[in-house]
């Protein structure tokens, strides 16, 4: 058998049709795979199974008593009402400001001959709710 003959025979064999069912099977597998890829993650059955398993593991972990480290002393029991009262930060004290203005004569320490000079002095009185606390602020 010459090369041409057997190559032609090989071509004939290659041209023999493949059963349509084999093509259809490939198409169906491809389309199923593409449809599966488009399915949202939350709609895939294995996701629900995985979520259920994760939830079960979480419940088990929460319910399992934790072993104490060896050698650790037991903590004293906490007695209700025995704890010290906890105070919050003190509320800010409201402050009122009253301003007094007066003219004062400045003579001390001045050399003689210089004209008499008056200056205005500002006294700010800060009143708080506490009658024992009064703050004066004097400015010139």
């Amino acid at each position: 058998m010459s090369d041409e003959n057997w190559v032609e025979l090989l071509r004939e064999a290659h041209r023999e049709p493949i059963a349509p069912a084999h093509y259809a099977a490939v198409r169906a597998r491809v389309l199923a795979e593409l449809a599966r890829e488009r399915t949202p993650v939350w709609r895939r059955p294995w996701v629900w199974g995985l979520a259920a398993a994760a939830a079960a593991v979480a419940v088990l972990v929460m319910m399992t008593p934790r072993p104490r480290p060896v050698g650790q002393a037991l903590r004293p029991a906490i007695v209700a009402g025995a704890t010290a009262p906890v105070y919050g930060p003190a509320a800010p004290v409201p402050v009122k400001a009253v301003v007094h203005r007066r003219r004062v004569s400045i003579q001390e320490g001045r050399p003689k001959g210089l004209p008499h000079q008056e200056q205005e002095q500002v006294v700010i009185k800060l009143l708080t709710d506490d009658p024992n606390v009064v703050i004066y602020w004097i400015g010139e």
Partner: peptide, 16 residues
């Protein structure tokens, strides 16, 4: 997918 199915039919003999 329907369009791709048609495309596969056109080339399935070549590939398989």
């Amino acid at each position: 997918l329907a369009a791709f199915d048609q495309l596969m039919r056109q080339h399935e003999r070549l590939v398989l």
